[in-house]
């Protein structure tokens, strides 16, 4: 019984870590994907880099922690999830490598070719993870063709099924809106105006995709079953929808911070919707339900879970505190004067 409590705690934490990761790195991905369409010259491109500047690195650690937590709390899931998704995961990692160095390297040479190369890396390095995380999570929701040994039947291309692609597309568009709103918060003048217009346009697409996604989830997965069984859980998709419908109102009144928070709410609770629907499974098997990886058959020992709980309950709040402090410290807009300084990207 005690074991069950810790397994449930870690399942929730697992979901929270992924949700926070998508909420935070999501706007970095959005900024990167938007850059070719929204920035018309070098200083506008640099404003985009610097809008993510002090944050992207700290944001990415949520991914490392989500991965580490999966490893520590559900080692069997970690092993099967990442070996089954070998190719897409390595693509994500290479993309993240290119994105990371693009930030650091781009401003270190004046040549336009040099800058263009890193700009391309930033765009690819933002688009691929956004798409592939969406594809991967949609496939988790649907279930992976894993057998009782955790060996995946079917190749990487089988992940690109319609529902998987729908998940990928939804992630891309959610992050585009999220990134555009962040840019509206962080910039001024014409760039801000363009960001606002882009956010409005992609918002329409986001609503459309979200609708299709929630419906397709009803037809192609059993995720909704949990929500009808425990009605209280319906608050999760409700909050996702609430965030989504609140965005245009905030946008119209120029409350960009609030619009961004609404978008963050959407991302967090869309992720939470999927995760809550999976419970108590982490990755269902589409071949045989009894081969699914659950919190009961894939978790660590009670002792490890207990120790990890203590560590998480002490240190995650501390992390949140200092990261919030960082966001506050660097909350002002990226001004053209800042681009003249040595430390600007």
């Amino acid at each position: 019984m005690e074991q069950n409590i810790f397994q449930v705690i870690w399942f929730i934490l697992w979901g929270v870590l992924w949700a926070v990761y998508f909420m935070l790195d999501g706007f970095d991905f959005g900024l990167g994907m938007l850059m070719p369409f929204i920035a018309k010259n070098d200083s506008e491109r640099r404003i985009i880099y610097n809008a993510a500047g002090p944050f992207w690195d700290g944001n990415e650690v949520w991914l490392i922690t989500a991965g580490g937590a999966t490893f520590a709390a559900f080692p069997k899931t970690y092993a099967i999830m990442f070996s089954a998704l070998y190719t897409p995961l390595l693509l994500i990692l290479f993309a993240l490598i290119l994105r990371g160095v693009a930030f650091e390297f781009r401003g270190k040479e004046e040549s336009p070719v040099w800058k263009m190369v890193w700009d391309i890396c930033l765009v690819i390095g933002s688009f691929l993870p956004a798409l592939l995380f969406g594809v991967a999570f949609a496939n988790f929701f649907k279930g992976l063709p894993i057998d009782w040994q955790g060996i995946m039947h079917g190749n990487t291309l089988s992940l690109l099924n319609p529902y998987g692609l729908l998940g990928g597309l939804l992630f891309v568009v959610m992050f585009l809106v999220h990134g555009a709103l962040w840019l509206a918060v962080k910039s001024n003048g014409v760039l801000k105006w363009r960001a606002k217009v882009v956010a409005e346009k992609f918002w329409v697409l986001e609503v459309l995709l979200a609708l299709i996604f929630f419906m397709a989830t009803g037809f192609l997965t059993d995720l909704w079953a949990n929500f009808f069984h425990y009605k209280i859980l319906l608050i999760i998709p409700a909050l996702a929808v609430l965030g989504l419908v609140a965005i245009p109102g905030f946008l119209a009144s120029g409350a960009y911070w609030k619009a961004w928070f609404a978008s963050a709410l959407t991302i967090v609770f869309t992720t939470a919707f999927g995760v809550a629907g999976l419970f108590p499974r982490l990755i269902p098997s589409s071949l045989n339900p009894s081969w699914s990886l659950t919190i009961y058959n894939s978790s660590s020992s009670p002792l490890t879970l207990k120790i990890m709980t203590v560590v998480a309950f002490i240190f995650v709040p501390v992390v949140i505190l200092y990261q919030v402090w960082t966001y506050k410290t660097f909350s002002e807009k990226v001004r053209p004067e800042f681009l003249e300084t040595e430390e600007a990207y």
Binding site: D57, Y78, M308
Partner: peptide
């Protein structure tokens, strides 16, 4: 993973967050 994974997770939570946040 029961042992090795927890050490990596503790590393990320205790140290890596701190390092990556404060370098920025």
């Amino acid at each position: 993973g029961d042992i090795f994974g927890s050490l990596l997770a503790i590393e990320a939570t205790l140290a890596f967050f701190l390092e990556s946040t404060f370098i920025a």
